[in-house]
Amino acid sequence: MKKARPTPLEYTRKRWFQLVMLFNFIFLYFPIVALVAFSFNNSRRNITWNGFTFKYYVKAFHNESLFDAFLNSLIVAGISTVVSTILGAMLGLALYRFKFPAKNAFDGWIHLPIIIPEICMGVAMLAFFSRLNITLGLFTITVSHIAFSLPFVAVVVRARMAGFDHSLEEAARDLGANQWQTFKDVTLPYMMPGVVAGALLALTLSLDDFVITFFTSGPGSTTLPIKIFSMVRFSVTPEVNAASTVLIVITLILSVGTMVIQARGGKDKGLPI
């Protein structure tokens, strides 16, 4: 069928514009795609394709310190996600629900961990723990991860609640529910997609974090990003590519999951998922 000529604001139908966008997407994806592809390359010098293999995944899996680091990452991320989701969701709900004096300032303060340079927070945590003579390890990593994940959860939950129809709560109260029942039966079901999205975000942030972990980890508490860092400082090996690919796939699943939940949460207007 004949297509009408592009109109002035249909930028995506203009040839030169498509080229700019194509360049951007190649720029964004080529390095990652190459990294993933060459984790399956049957050659140590990963520049030419020598056939498909899983052997670097097997190797990475049998690399004990790498595997330990992976387990450490899961432990830290698991605990950090649970704690930061609960605290962050409560905070997000409070920010949606209450007005109190100096709320703008409070808001700015709560969001600081999101915005300040990671290196500043990293060295601050290091100074803090060493001042208190707390040995660096999984505990200190987890505590720090909770501190920077919590505000993200609060932001996501609060954004979710922004679309909530407050009269639903009033209706519940009007029909005789007490405060807790109202929360449990009306508010929480609506809030849930935001909480789940916040939890997935917290999990991703924790699994991904390098800088703050770098300053709060001790000798026996290497996480996966720290381990990968120490490996890539020496050389580029397919084994590292394999380990990286595993991490990419995990975060990819988590992030797409988050977006699907948020998109669906927007559509069904708050039915429990």
Partner: peptide, 18 residues
Amino acid sequence: ILPFWTNLLIRTYAWIAV
């Protein structure tokens, strides 16, 4: 958004190979 979610370290490391 997707690259934004991918690990910072890995994204940087990927450029070494490039």
